[in-house]
Each structure stands twice: as structure tokens, then as C-alpha cells.
């Protein structure tokens, strides 16, 4: 792999702001998020329910629930265009073509009343060919590539006839069908058993190597992040708390939230029945966000200054954290 350089950036998100209009008023689910995704690399977005990681993915794809969800600010730069403002007709050509998507629940991502083959051919008919037989042939080839045995037979089957792992392979085949530059995977293995998860993660890594893909992987599982990602952003309550190369995030976490997360997970090599470190309290509601740092009500290092929002500042090479006190925190 070439050394990452600025021209390797395939997708660049700048100051993204996404809001939802609800009965309780306008809620800001994503509030000024920026990141770059590079060719051949995997960017992990990690955080807990409601932190805005899935809304970030839906914003990039422009698949926000309408009319409640709207991009209110920022740019999503991809192949010389700003996806945040692109007209729908042009978006259709990019979605499923240059940008592939993998969702959490393969059963809901697939149409239950159409054979796999028809759904897979449709991707080619939309983006690549007018010839139905050619599309079918390409679909069969794609199933073979994602490791589905007897693809000629599977093409005629319906989603319910496949296991969860096989269904997720079909979804991956659809996402990769048109040789996208970027794949966005939102919790792609969360619904799967751990031995099947291992198969799917291995498949995604092999395909990424072969195709030089850039991947955005959204997950709540720090283990999946550690094993599959090159770069990580940690989100909390709609903002980036910390970002950096995966080793830096796990070895030298700078933000108290990242530290708290890493300390609170039970580890196989840990002491049994010892009390786990916890992050006290819970994530604030988007309806009732504190002014300033959003982690302050759970933070053991809180001071008066935390009432003003900290900016992301560099704490190491390519490594940034949004905390006023990162310099003073005790070593872990």
C-alpha cells in the first residue's frame, strides 16, 4: 500500500450538521463533524446509541428520513462534487454505484418477495448494462466472489431461504457490484453470531485489499474497531470527542470518554468478578444538551472551564481530542 497522501482522500466530510424536526422541536443529531476517508483504508466511527454515528452515514448517503431529517450545514466532498447539495437525479447515479452501502440487518436490506438474483441484477441494470442476461451473469459472479457456494442456484432463492451470514454476503455483493470507491457499512456484523462475524469481517478485509476500497465502518464494538480499522473517530452526543490512528486511540486515548469506554469493557484476560470501571450516569438527551462540553456531566475531570465547548486540538500526529484538560490527565 502507498503511504497515505492528501490525494488519497476519497471522501471528505467537513463541518457536517444534521438536524431532525420532531414534536419536541429541532434536534441537532450531528453537530459539526469532519473527517477524511482514504483509499485502501478503513475509518471506524464508534460511539453509543444516539451519538450520531448512523445519522452521519445516512447524511453521506442522503438517506435521511424525509422530511424530518435535513443537512443544515457542511460539505460532503466526493469525486469533485458536494453530496450535501447534489440534486437527487445525480445522487442516484452515485448511490449504489460509486458509493456502496451495507446495513446492519440484512433481512430488511433485502426485498423478501424477490429472488436474490433479481435484486442483484438490478444493481447492474441501473449502473452498468442494459442486457438482463449479462446482468444476471455478473450477479452470479459477484455471489461467487463473496464466497457463496453454488451461486447459480442461490440466484433463484429468496432471502428467507438463506442464513443470516449468507444474507449479509448477498448485501455485500450488492454493495460491491459496481466497484465503488467507498463502502459505508453501518454495524455490518452486529446482528450476526460471533463465528459468522469472523467470516464476514475476514471477507470484507479481503475484498478491500483486492479492490483498494475506502471503507467507513460504523460500530459500537471496540473489538471490531481494533481489529479492522486504520483510523478511528469516537463520537459522543453528536460531536467528535477524539480522532486518530487506531493504535493511538487504544494506546494513548486522550479524551476522558474514550478512556472511560476502554476501561469499562470486560476483557478476556481481566480479573474475574472484579468490579468494572464505569462511566457514571448516561448520555444526555439531544433535547437537553449541556452548554459546553457534552461529556461534562459524566466526566470525573470536570472543571468550570468545561462550560465552554472545547475545540478538537492536536494531541499527537493525526491524533486530536476535544478536551480542555487532555494535557493534565493522569497517564493510564
Amino acid at each position: 500500500m502507498e503511504a497515505p497522501a492528501a490525494n488519497d482522500v476519497v471522501l471528505s466530510v467537513r463541518d457536517l450538521v444534521t438536524t431532525f424536526d420532531t414534536d419536541a422541536g429541532r434536534l441537532t443529531a450531528v453537530d459539526g463533524v469532519s473527517f477524511d476517508v482514504r483509499r485502501g483504508r478503513t475509518l471506524g466511527i464508534v460511539g453509543e446509541s444516539g451519538c450520531g454515528k448512523s445519522v452521519t452515514a445516512l447524511s453521506i448517503m442522503r438517506l435521511l428520513p424525509q422530511p424530518m431529517g435535513q443537512i443544515r450545514g457542511g460539505r460532503i466532498l466526493f469525486e469533485g462534487r458536494d453530496l450535501a447539495t447534489l440534486p437527487p437525479a445525480e445522487l442516484h447515479r452515485i448511490r449504489g454505484g460509486r458509493i456502496g452501502m451495507i446495513f446492519q440487518e440484512p433481512m430488511t436490506a433485502l426485498n423478501p418477495v424477490q429472488p436474490i438474483g433479481r435484486q442483484l441484477s438490478e444493481v447492474f441494470l441501473l449502473h452498468r448494462t442494459k442486457d438482463a442476461a449479462d446482468a444476471w451473469r455478473r450477479g452470479t459472479e459477484m455471489l461467487r466472489k463473496v464466497g457463496i457456494p453454488a451461486p447459480e442456484i442461490r440466484m433463484h432463492e429468496y432471502p428467507h431461504q438463506l442464513s443470516g451470514g449468507m444474507r449479509q454476503r448477498v448485501v455485500i455483493a450488492m454493495a460491491l457490484a459496481c466497484e465503488p470507491a467507498v463502502v459505508i457499512a453501518d454495524e455490518p456484523t452486529t446482528a450476526l453470531d460471533v463465528t459468522i462475524q469472523a467470516q464476514i469481517l475476514e471477507l470484507m478485509q479481503a475484498l478491500q485489499r483486492d479492490l483498494g476500497l475506502a471503507v467507513v465502518l460504523i460500530t459500537h464494538d471496540l473489538g471490531v474497531i481494533a481489529e479492522t480499522c486504520d483510523d478511528v473517530i469516537v463520537m459522543y452526543a453528536g460531536r467528535v470527542a477524539e480522532s486518530g490512528p487506531v493504535e493511538a486511540i487504544f494506546d494513548r486515548p486522550a479524551h476522558p470518554y474514550t478512556r472511560g469506554l476502554l476501561d469499562s469493557i470486560p476483557r478476556l484476560e481481566g480479573t474475574r468478578k472484579a468490579r468494572l470501571r464505569v462511566i457514571e450516569g448516561m448520555v444526555p438527551s439531544l433535547r437537553d444538551l449541556p452548554a459546553g462540553c457534552r461529556f461534562q456531566n459524566r466526566c470525573p475531570h470536570r472543571i468550570d472551564r468545561c462550560a465552554t465547548a472545547p475545540a478538537l486540538e492536536a494531541v499527537g500526529p493525526d491524533h486530536a481530542a476535544a478536551c480542555h484538560r487532555w494535557r493534565e490527565l493522569p497517564p493510564r
Binding site: 451470514g165 467470516q199 481494533a226 476502554l262
Partner: peptide, 25 residues
């Protein structure tokens, strides 16, 4: 053994060998 090796560990420097089982239950 396969189950233990399949668990993703929160350690980016992990170098263990993963046993990937073929097929489904």
C-alpha cells in the same frame, strides 16, 4: 477454540491466529 479466537479483541496490536469456521450452524 474457534469461539474464543473469533471474538474481536479491543487491542489493535493483537497477533493471535483466528480460526474461522466454515459454514453455518
Amino acid at each position: 477454540r474457534a469461539l474464543l479466537s473469533a471474538i474481536p479483541r479491543p487491542d489493535p496490536r493483537g497477533t493471535r491466529e483466528r480460526i474461522v469456521l466454515q459454514g453455518d450452524v
